[in-house]
Design a protein around this nucleic acid. Sequence first.
DNA 1: TTGTAAGCGTTATCAT
DNA 2: ATGATAACGCTTACAA
Lengths: 364, 364
Amino acid sequence: MEQPRKRAKPGRAPAPAGRKSRPRQAEVARLAGVSQATVSLVLNARRDGKGATISEETRQRVLDAARSLGYVPDPAARRLAAARNNLLGVFSFTSTFPTDVQHSYYPFLVGVEQEAAARGYDLVLFTASSGGGPDALSRVRLADGCLFLGRHVPRAELKRLVADGFPVVHLGRREELEGLAWVGADYVSASREVVAHLADLGHRRIVLVREDDDAPASTDRQQGFLDGLDGAGLAGGPDSVLRCADPVSEVTAERVRELVAEGVTAFVAEETDTGAAWQALTGAVAGAGLSCPGDVSLALLGSPPPELAAGPVPTGFDVPRHELGAAAVRLLSAQVAGEEADEPLVACEFRAGLTAGPAPVPEP
Amino acid sequence: MEQPRKRAKPGRAPAPAGRKSRPRQAEVARLAGVSQATVSLVLNARRDGKGATISEETRQRVLDAARSLGYVPDPAARRLAAARNNLLGVFSFTSTFPTDVQHSYYPFLVGVEQEAAARGYDLVLFTASSGGGPDALSRVRLADGCLFLGRHVPRAELKRLVADGFPVVHLGRREELEGLAWVGADYVSASREVVAHLADLGHRRIVLVREDDDAPASTDRQQGFLDGLDGAGLAGGPDSVLRCADPVSEVTAERVRELVAEGVTAFVAEETDTGAAWQALTGAVAGAGLSCPGDVSLALLGSPPPELAAGPVPTGFDVPRHELGAAAVRLLSAQVAGEEADEPLVACEFRAGLTAGPAPVPEP
DNA sequence: TTGTAAGCGTTATCAT
DNA sequence: ATGATAACGCTTACAA
């Protein structure tokens, strides 16, 4: 019999002595006295009985062996073999956990985590800072799909992922990129609702204070604001929108006094990262010596910043961040499953608040 | 027309319809007229010149081919072959992202993410809730190592991981479990420092208000408190510690008045989840009609709860949560690399604050 | 019902 | 300096 030539084989070096390597299917197989493939079959047995043809006895032996060894499938190998990982990626272009808690994605992640857990996915946080290189984004392919969040999107990279058919969902409206799925809040309807509320209270002249930004979140709010005016039969001339590069210096007490003198009875501010518009507005109203629900009504198109949590609850709406996160996961998970699903805009919840009241009766 | 029957070969199934195939190293190789291995060598050429022995010409040809094909490495294959997942787990026994932001691990995660990114790791988020079963903990093995945080630790499961040589680090002191690595804040030193500060200000009778809890975080603070008294040559009798099951009802204005009458000039409260001790203390002092840095000095062994952020900054110390997270990742990453490293306690930073002043001169 | 083996896209080793 | 080739751990078609 021909002796198998025992020449040193090419290939990887043996595992370094120090660390114990995790158990693999082969070891489970050995312990259970079956073939490695059987282990795979047992472990991936579909619950719908389809294709699962394994005797209950073997099944148990394999399961026991796996448990006693603490076996867990290697996600990379699973993925490589053209199967699923049960891993969903989360990639933020800035840090996922910025030092400044205020600007963080935390509230979204709450929803993301819950929905992911409910669907049996674990979450991989791809840390943006690490790679840096052009293919930093490409690491996400380790997961079955990936959620993206952040302001500045590397278009080319993302486009590539989408083009390759890799499941991708962006959290926040993003229509610029053809074929990119996204979920977003319905700022238009919510803003319209707020304006309708003010109109119901008798306000005829309403002014929007917004920052000088072209983000969808801003333009959507303005659109809803104008829609609202329109729906109430109110004029929405150009002077009903104050677009300020720096709200704090532009929305002064004097300016507010002027506008009120002209007949404005209600102000609406958009919510932004900094909360500048709202802060400028409330500051100016107080500075003008006007009482809030009494002399003028105020509304905030969004949630108040945490540092103002102590003040009176502003009339306005809340962005359902949890729900947005959850919706994103639903959409992504549908994509992963190959179902080209579609998530509608998520509705914001109206918040009655304390800063809006009946329009003051004009003095004769 | 009779289709030439392509007999399906064993092996993997055809790629799922959605997923378009991307160029691989083999195609780059073909285009560049070299072997696939050469492509790998070129693409992974170490910048330190070590082991890189490829002619500049080939190098360029390969690079060009890769670029023109838009080649991006497959992370799954890469990790599989390299036998490293570059994945660190984060497991919290409660939800990683509790709805209540206040009690969240957020501040730690900031540090964890940064350090992980710096070391080229991605993070896998596990939640106790998602798994469910008794071997839910076992899922963490899909990562190269795992960070644990939370109050209630399933000892048996964790022990198993440690025994199996799986790299594990607990965030927060945890000496009960033999062989479990952990990182913690040095509450003892920090508390001692605060007391020393008070003693320097002339206080001779200082009382600690703490909750009825046996967590290391509590006992460490008490120990540091007593050490501080001792170091200042002050008596640390049993009446210098107020251990309350319910601080708010036990630390009353009357009680404070009594103690002050007995000669107590400074109070120290431990920081807890709820912040009850500190709130009870400040409330009682105000209720007793005492002015804070004037009549009595107050110190908080930790950071004030967010809802009190508006008040005067308490004298005390800050737990370096970012740094703790980072330290945990360092320790874990050392373990993963097989280096049995050791992280010392992380120092807390003294905060001068505004609630402590010179001891009032006793009236004759 | 179970075993055999191909192949996923890399990396790393040896031989040329 | 480059090319073969063996792993890496897994899924799955097909043979037994």
